[in-house]
Design a protein around this nucleic acid. Structure first.
Length: 256
DNA sequence: GCGACAG
DNA sequence: ATCTTGTCGC
C-alpha cells in the first residue's frame, strides 16, 4: 500500500535543511557568552520528548527552565502531543521540532520573563550529515541560542567509532576534558566532552545556533552534575514522570 | 549483501 | 525512544 520513507519527502527535507542551514550563527552573539563566569546568564532551557513503550506516535513534549548557576527548576511544562513524521536518522528535527517550538511559544505567551537565554537540546547541532541537526533547526526557528548534546556518537563526515576514537576517549581524564570531532574537510563540527569526573563515557557537544563551540562546551560542562547536562536531564525526568502519572498501566502488558 | 542508524 | 534488576565499585 503506502510506500516506505518517501524518497521525495527526503529530498524535500534535505532541501529545507540546506536552506535553513544558511541562517545558523556559529559564533557568540550574546554579552553573557563573553563574560568570565557567564555573568548575566540567569535562565537555561532544556527540551525533550518521552514516549510510552509500544507507542511512537503519542509523546510528552517537555520544556524546563533552570536558574544559572544554581540549576534550580524555575519553570516546567509537559504537553501530550501526536507526532506525524517518522524517525529517520538525519531528520530528527522534522519529527520533534514543531512540538518543542510550541512549548517555547507557550512560555513566551504566558511568562515571557522566564524565557531561557540558551536552550539545551537532546541531539546534535552542526555535528550532523548536512551540518543541520535538531539543535540548529530549533535554534533557527526559535531565534534562541541553542546547544546540541548527543549521548551517542553519530558517525558522520569521517568521524568513526574507530580504535583511534576509543583511545581519544580513554585520554579524557577528568570532567571538562574534551577532544574535537573533525570532519574529513578539516572543519571541527563538535567536541566529545567528559562531562564529569565520574562518567568515562563522553557526551557529544555541537553548536546549535548563536553560540561558539568553545562556549557551548564550557557551558555544557558548567551544567553537569551528572553525565547528562541538568537542563536535558530535568526535561527527561519531568516528561517521564508525566507519563508515569497519566498513563499508569500503559506499562503492564497483558498476556493470555 | 552488510553495516549504520542523534532520538 | 523503549525493553529492564540486580549488582559491582567507589
Amino acid at each position: 500500500m503506502s510506500a516506505p520513507p518517501a524518497e521525495d519527502l527526503i529530498k524535500q527535507w534535505e532541501s529545507e535543511q540546506a536552506s535553513l542551514r544558511k541562517q545558523v550563527l556559529e559564533e557568540d552573539t550574546e554579552d553573557w557568552q563573553r563574560e568570565p563566569d557567564f555573568s548575566g546568564l540567569e535562565r537555561i532551557g532544556g527540551v525533550d520528548l518521552s514516549f510510552i513503550k509500544g507507542d511512537d506516535v503519542n509523546a510528552c513534549a517537555q520544556l524546563v527552565v533552570l536558574s544559572y548557576p544554581d540549576l534550580e527548576v524555575l519553570y516546567e511544562d509537559s504537553q501530550m502531543v501526536t507526532l506525524t513524521a517518522p524517525y529517520i536518522a538525519g531528520f530528527l528535527a522534522f519529527r520533534e521540532t514543531p512540538f518543542l517550538l510550541e512549548a517555547l511559544q507557550r512560555l513566551e505567551r504566558n511568562q515571557p520573563t522566564l524565557l531561557p537565554q540558551v536552550v539545551f537540546v537532546d541531539g546534535n547541532g552542526l555535528f550532523h550529515y548536512r551540518e543541520f541537526g535538531l539543535a540548529c533547526h530549533l535554534g533557527v526557528l526559535s531565534g534562541l541560542p541553542c546547544v546540541g548534546v548527543a549521548k551517542n556518537l553519530l558517525q558522520v563526515q569521517g568521524v568513526y567509532k574507530s580504535e583511534e576514537h576509543q583511545s581519544q576517549i580513554a585520554s579524557l581524564k577528568k570532567g571538562g576534558d574534551s577532544f574535537p570531532l573533525t570532519a574529513a574537510s578539516g572543519k571541527v563540527l563538535g567536541k566529545a566532552l567528559r562531562s564529569s569526573d565520574k562518567s568515562s563515557k563522553p557526551v557529544y557537544v555541537s553548536v546549535g545556533h548563536k553560540i561558539s563551540l568553545d562556549t557551548a562546551v564550557h557551558l555544557t560542562h558548567r551544567c553537569c552534575r551528572y553525565r547528562v547536562p541538568e537542563p536535558i536531564r530535568q526535561a527527561d525526568f519531568h516528561s517521564r514522570e508525566y507519563l508515569r502519572k497519566n498513563f499508569p498501566a500503559a506499562n503492564t502488558q497483558i498476556k493470555e
